[in-house]
């Protein structure tokens, strides 16, 4: 395991402050995107695609640039979305762990990293089930996908959530982002670089 770094101020309050300051998280899927995000205005990188076994140097770069990193445990290569995979992420220096799995989310909180639970929305039943799972897991933050529909379903989600909300998925334009933020999201996560550069 290479040397581990964790950015200063990567508590929940610090994490939220970064997103409030610039409400566009850079969703990155490759090394080149990480490099561009480090040079951009985004304060938090959401790492969706990477070799999870080689993350420590990447996270060191993120922290050296004064930014924070949330890593998607369900999507990165090389790790399983379970307690062992989560412990690895923590040791690598992730500031936040993202998963749709409640047990992983609970463990993330126990390990002192920001816990982000994904709410995957396809129909009303998935909202009900997802909100029930969130109530059980008690994540620090919820990320709704596809985020672009938040203005359409605000009434079904926001009043029942009671915790900070991110929105990701199909948010490509400033108009999309404005509508989502006005609907109640704290920030958007997007791979549209024009929004975070």
């Amino acid at each position: 395991m290479p040397g581990v770094t964790r950015a200063g101020g990567s508590s929940l309050a610090g994490f939220l402050d970064r997103l409030r300051a610039f409400p566009f998280g850079a969703a990155v899927k490759g090394e080149a995107e990480v490099g561009r995000a480090l040079a951009a205005r985004a304060q938090v990188l959401f790492i969706l695609r990477a070799n999870g076994l080689e993350l420590a140097p990447v996270l060191q770069q993120v922290h050296a640039a004064g930014k924070l990193a949330a890593v998607h445990l369900d999507l990165v290569d090389g790790l399983s979305a379970d307690q062992g995979g989560l412990r690895w992420l923590v040791r690598c220096g992730a500031d936040a762990a993202i998963s749709a799995r409640g047990d992983v989310v609970r463990s993330a909180r126990a390990h002192g990293v920001v816990a982000i639970q994904r709410l995957l929305v396809q129909d009303e039943a998935s909202i009900d089930h997802g909100l029930a799972a969130i109530a059980r897991a008690e994540p620090d933050i919820v990320e709704l996908l596809p985020g672009v529909i938040l203005p359409h379903i605000r009434d079904l989600v926001v009043p029942r959530l009671g915790r900070p909300l991110l929105a990701g998925g199909f948010i490509r334009t400033p108009e999309d982002a404005t509508a989502v933020l006005e609907a109640g999201a704290l920030a958007v996560t997007t791979s549209a670089e024009a929004l975070w550069t």
Binding site: V121, Q122, D123, P146, V148, I149, H152, I153, G169, F170, R172, D176
Partner: peptide, 11 residues
């Protein structure tokens, strides 16, 4: 496609 309400937002 689900949720259908997302369809107009796809590229």
């Amino acid at each position: 496609i689900s949720p259908g309400v997302a369809l107009p937002h796809l590229e």
